[in-house]
Design a protein around this nucleic acid. Structure first.
Lengths: 337, 337
DNA sequence: CTGAAAGCGCTTACAG
DNA sequence: CTGAAAGCGCTTACAG
């Protein structure tokens, strides 16, 4: 059984291939092709199960209808959720998505951009790693549609969609503060990612704005490559060594480590210690009542990124206010059982 | 800045495009092109940053070097991990991967196959949903390289790679049995997926083989679409209503629900109740010491699937014993802290 | 050893 | 209204 081609349809319908192409691409009216012929062509195409060869279409039109998505790690729930929604949105618009993971390695990221550009993707959605700046600039120079997601490159004028980290921290701090907590520790990771910096700043600013004294020893920066067991111990020491009554964990992963430490110390949440955490997924909602989470709105991030990319692909005009989109997180709390 | 084409390289190197193509595709020797010219061509190509247009290559050669991966849900950790490894393996071999999720909906799966075939993917890795059989058969008829993963279609002779569910259950049961447990409950989900059936069978067979009485009331089938809260309650009733001393959860997700129920009942693991669980990822290892898990070897599944697919793509011969590959799970236990 | 030509399957000006 | 032709960027027989 051979693949059916446009010329097969043409000969069966008694016309020439170009007519078939015109009709199937909805240009029958425009080209004033008679309804009866158009109808016949459509019927034959349907009957034969004709599907255009996407590769040939791409070569001819210069559009592949494939989007390139480069995330840090597709096996991470946050990125996997983003990827899924991006894929769905893209499919809705007739686009496919080619994914890949940088492992936060700029070198690998650069390879991936090369690979995708070889495939002639129509646009890129990327969570940039530090070190990829010059290659991103290349894409911009070549006028490739490009949207950064979850992170951005300060100084480069590239459209990006971010979670409003400052706002998220603020929401959480406000919540604790209103509950009567003013002794709040902050646990983060010693990574230079811009969003981690923003979260720490959010914490510091909240304290300052509310005239609460900053205890530098209540800020704990976990090393990125710590072994988990060791991290749990160190965090337990941190918790038992100070007088704060609440902890804000800057990420999901830190939160899970923190919970182990807290369990180990046999502290009760929230009786002995209130816990709040920036959360990429529903981990805490599922397992641990009593923990307040700042939820990252994955769906909005993904849909917005696709929207911005499509605007570029379709050449819609963008003013400069357009280049940064902030997505607002929300607060979810669940009282302890 | 315009894209550099093969003819640009040719004119800069003072040769004709075909010579460039030959050299860059490593056929210089074969065509007895002089080393000096070959070297010159390579130098120019390097200097100009030449990259062949993948679309044009695909159209000409009939090979896209893209693989299609269809899983149930890419945002699920198990599939996301598989996807990542498949992508890495494929990249190593010079292939890209187009992913998509069926949501366990055969209709959607069929659409996805169509979409991928339009993109002319060179091969498919699919976790089939019930109802996709006839379309899979179509792929086989068209001689498309195809590997099923994690599931298979009984009756269809399609290469597939599976976790040895029976063996996994057996390992876990054996472990419990040796620890002195013979009152073991089994919690599964009322889905007709073949691997769920196998897990239940593994449980039943172990009991039979060891001449342990089967208590049908110790087997609990959770409904697929239960609300989580309701499921937790029902499971708690199940647990408190019977005299078993251990529970085998057939999936990760069931395990997390079960743990909530157990917490609610204030039972201690493993003092009051031993818990063992089929686990797709490291969820339990991270959070809950004392739980034994049957670990699905994601890496092996993914690598094997890619290997089988490549064998087909490269036309390597396969005998029928080749069509089913079993991947062995392993047991991980962590004593309570 | 090298060059000219055909062709992969489409779309789109262009001529009738 | 319809048909013949060019061309997207490459690879690969084929002729010299």
């Amino acid at each position: 059984m051979k693949r059916v081609l446009i010329k097969d349809i043409a000969s069966k319908a008694g016309v020439v291939p170009s007519t078939v192409s015109l009709v199937l691409n909805g240009k029958a009216k425009e080209m004033r092709i008679s309804d009866s012929i158009a109808e016949k062509i459509r019927a034959v195409a349907e009957a034969e199960g004709y599907m255009p060869n996407g590769i040939a279409v791409s070569l001819r039109t210069g559009k592949s209808r494939i989007l390139g998505l480069i995330v840090e790690d597709i096996s991470n729930v946050f990125f996997a959720s983003l990827a899924k929604i991006i894929e769905e949105e893209a499919n809705l618009l007739g686009y496919k998505v080619l994914y890949c993971s940088t492992e936060n390695d700029a070198q690998k990221g650069v390879e991936l951009i090369k690979m995708l550009s070889q495939t002639q993707v129509d646009g890129y959605i990327i969570t940039p790693s530090p070190g990829m700046e010059s290659n991103l600039k290349q894409l911009v120079i070549h006028k490739k549609p490009l949207v950064l997601m979850d992170r951005y490159c300060p100084g480069l004028d590239i459209a990006h969609v971010l979670v409003n980290n400052t706002k998220g921290i603020c929401l959480g701090m406000q919540y604790l503060y209103e509950k009567g907590y003013d002794k709040i520790a902050f646990v983060t990771i010693d990574l230079e990612q811009i969003q981690m910096q923003e979260r720490l700043n959010g914490y510091l600013n909240f304290l300052k704005d509310n005239k609460i004294a900053v205890h530098n020893e209540w800020i704990y920066k976990l090393s990125y490559h710590y072994e988990r067991e060791k991290a749990v111990e160190e965090l337990a020491d941190f918790i038992s060594g100070h007088q704060f009554k609440a902890i804000f964990f800057a990420t999901n992963y830190l939160g899970t480590i923190g919970l182990e430490s807290i369990k180990k110390l046999k502290l009760k949440i929230p009786r002995d210690l209130a816990v709040i955490c920036f959360d990429d997924n529903d981990l805490f909602r599922l397992y641990d009542p009593g923990i307040t989470i700042v939820k990252q709105p994955v769906i909005n991030i993904a849909k917005t990124a696709v929207g911005l990319l499509m605007d570029q692909i379709n050449g819609r005009k963008m003013d400069s206010s357009y280049s940064q989109t902030m997505i607002e997180p929300s607060l979810i709390q669940r009282e302890s059982a």
